[in-house]
Design a protein around this nucleic acid. Structure first.
Lengths: 199, 199
DNA sequence: CTATTTTGTGAGCAGTCGTTCAACTACCAG
DNA sequence: CTGGTAGTTGAACGACTGCTCACAAAATAG
């Protein structure tokens, strides 16, 4: 009974997500949101209560779709874990968009003072990524493509941190070649020991 | 001739800097700035033209004082370069402030879409840090505390990226122990080769 | 002293912010 | 059809935004 909802929640959250990524929470006004999603303030407030509510829903959707999706495709599923880690990194830059929207987790973490309610969502997303790295590294160790004594837990945190740093550099407009250098270095440092018995 | 300026430019920029670090460019209103600096809008606009102008002056001061100061103390001057790199990292977190203001460069890079004029200042600061790492690593190599074949340029970018990632985690409220783990890992990966002829 | 110049003060401007709400539209049960 | 209900619309609200400017205060020059 009653009128049917004319819009798709997932689509609206996707538009809002994109806007928040580009402009940040503070930088996206409700007028911007209205334009991006096509939703008028009434519908928006009926559903999400507030701008905050919409943002948290968008962050949740980002975790469930973007983050978990990328972790699955690049870190959990590939048969070659190291290649997966590499593609996880490289797929984070060179989107072609100008300026690069970066990562909603990274951007929100930095903006967190003004969006304290979002801290939990950010931490959850970061944990998902870290766990993905740990999974890939464990499998790589089993395959023998990384040293058997590699500290998986420590290396996962390391990769997560490096990844977040990359996303900062992306936002700073760093040339892609430099970002590739970072990716190469990351893999070199966890890959098979050099110096041991090279050629 | 004329009345004397009652306020100290460096002091005002320091207060503004702190405010921008905590709240970001967008999150710091002119009323906030007025309260933090003690400067009324008239004086502020007479000197800095706009909120943008003040921000750019604050970012410049941040580069010249905070960034260059820390690079000098931790990366250029220490006789033990690796210990310097470690203290450069550890001094970036555990400030005791809640929430941690993080780094103005990191925060501004992420917010850059809405502050495009600041991009140059951000890049300059990042370059200063990278050059500092390069200097420390070169000296470490000369001292033999890192492998002779270490790629200084590549490792510097690596450290810069990791450092920026750390500052993101700091803002996300990551526990200090984890941040220390990252620091330890960074030094372990550039330090003397393990596995070669240990014990 | 007066005239001139520089700086400080803060009320107030036009515009935008997040938010609300009364009128309106579309659907279902009876 | 009628009554009830859920959803849409957009004008409007008070609060706040970055910013301006007329005036007051303090310094120097003559």
């Amino acid at each position: 009974m009653g009128r049917r909802q004319l819009w798709d929640r997932a689509e609206v959250l996707a538009s809002a997500m994109g806007l928040f990524r580009r402009r940040g929470y503070q930088g996206a006004s409700l007028r911007d949101i209205e334009e991006a999603t096509g939703l008028h303030p009434g519908s928006l407030y009926r559903t999400f209560q507030s701008k905050d509510g919409l943002f948290q829903a968008a962050l949740e959707a980002y975790n469930e779709q973007v983050v978990q999706g990328r972790v699955r495709v690049h870190l959990l599923e590939p048969t070659d874990p190291l290649a997966g880690i590499r593609s996880f990194f490289t797929s984070a830059f060179g989107t072609g968009l100008e300026p690069d929207p970066g990562c909603l987790l990274t951007n929100t973490a930095v903006e967190s003072f003004t969006v304290p309610q979002a801290a939990a969502g950010v931490r959850q997303g970061l944990e998902t990524i870290e766990a993905g790295f740990a999974d890939a590294l464990t499998r790589a160790r089993a395959l023998g493509t990384v040293p058997a004594d590699l500290d998986v837990e420590m290396t996962s945190v390391q990769l997560l941190t490096l990844y977040q740093g990359l996303l900062v550099l992306v936002r700073a407009g760093t040339p892609i070649t430099k970002l590739h250098t970072v990716t190469d270095g990351a893999l070199a440092s966890i890959g098979p020991r050099k110096r041991d018995s090279d050629e």
